Amino acid sequence: MTFSIVARCPETGMFGVAISSSSPAVAARCSYARAGVGAVASQNVTDPSLGPLTLDLMQGGLSASDAIAKVQSQGRFIEYRQVLAVDAEGRTAIHSGPNSLGIWTQAQAENVASGGNLLANDGVPQAIVDGFRASTGHLADRLIAAMRAGMAAGGEAGPVHSAGLKIVDKVSWPVVDLRCDWTDDCPIEAIATLWDIYKPQLDAYVQRALDPRAAPSYGVPGDE
């Protein structure tokens, strides 16, 4: 019931996850990223513990493929799970269990991996990867372009209702964590609209956390 992308920007070192589903609040259960380590999507009859586990393994020195192999050996009911990972070197790996739902498939390249289940067709993940590789700009812009490409290729077999966009950079928290937990319109477009609003403010929010004395004004009464 989900399609997603995990990616690394080799120029900035940022990692990101974008995801969409017919289920509510998909990003709350399925999106994981850690600065300097990598990004993971854990989906299809989701076990949310697999995202942090994969990140822990990569932080401990394993490559994406070795981490996914470890998850395959340790995860419970792994035959029902899909797990996608990209590591600090841009290496990617995917596990898709044989009990993944409906039409399921995956695609990957350096710095990017995509997978999905209950898809409209088996070309959606490759369209997402191709969309990402053809795009330019901020990692968030590229992830949104990739998800739009996935939708244009057919997306999920039914309507999608939730989506999320998460990006980590040099600090310990996500610098972008945008979610649409439910809509009857397109949740990917809802995320794109949120990103258009948030993008010009991103650096200011990071600066306020690091040193509010040097931050831009807050734009509230009494602020000078």
Rank of each mutant, 00 (worst) to 15 (best):
P216I: 09
I188R: 08
V71E: 03
A146C: 10
V160Y: 03
R179M: 02
P24C: 02
M58P: 02
V160H: 14
V175A: 00
Y218A: 11
D211W: 14
A18F: 10
G150Q: 14
S49W: 15
Q59R: 11
S96T: 15
E11G: 01
S42E: 13
D169V: 02
S73N: 12
Y218Q: 13
Q74I: 04
L53M: 13
L178R: 09
G38D: 04
V124M: 15
Y198W: 15
T136A: 08
D56L: 02
R213A: 14
M147S: 09
A215T: 11
I68P: 09
S22W: 10
G154E: 05
A152E: 12
F132D: 03
P221Q: 07
A214V: 05
G164F: 12
A190Y: 12
M1P: 08
L202P: 04
P24R: 00
L84Q: 04
Q59M: 00
V71F: 12
G164Q: 10
A69Q: 14
I188A: 06
A107V: 04
Q108D: 10
S135G: 09
N111T: 06
N111D: 11
A163Q: 11
E156K: 05
D196Q: 11
A113V: 06
V112I: 13
G38W: 02
A27V: 12
A134E: 06
Q43S: 07
R34G: 01
P125T: 08
Q72G: 15
T54E: 03
G155N: 13
Q82W: 01
D203S: 11
A25G: 09
W173V: 04
I19F: 06
I94L: 01
G150E: 13
V45Q: 05
C30Y: 04
L202W: 04
T12D: 02
C180S: 14
V83R: 08
V171T: 10
H95T: 05
R142K: 14
A67W: 00
G123K: 01
I68Q: 07
A41V: 14
V124Q: 13
L143W: 03
S217L: 15
G155D: 09
A163F: 11
S22N: 12
D47W: 11
D141M: 14
S217D: 11
C9G: 10
S4C: 13
A28P: 05
L139M: 03
V124Y: 07
S4P: 10
P212C: 00
F3V: 02
A145P: 07
A18C: 09
A127Q: 07
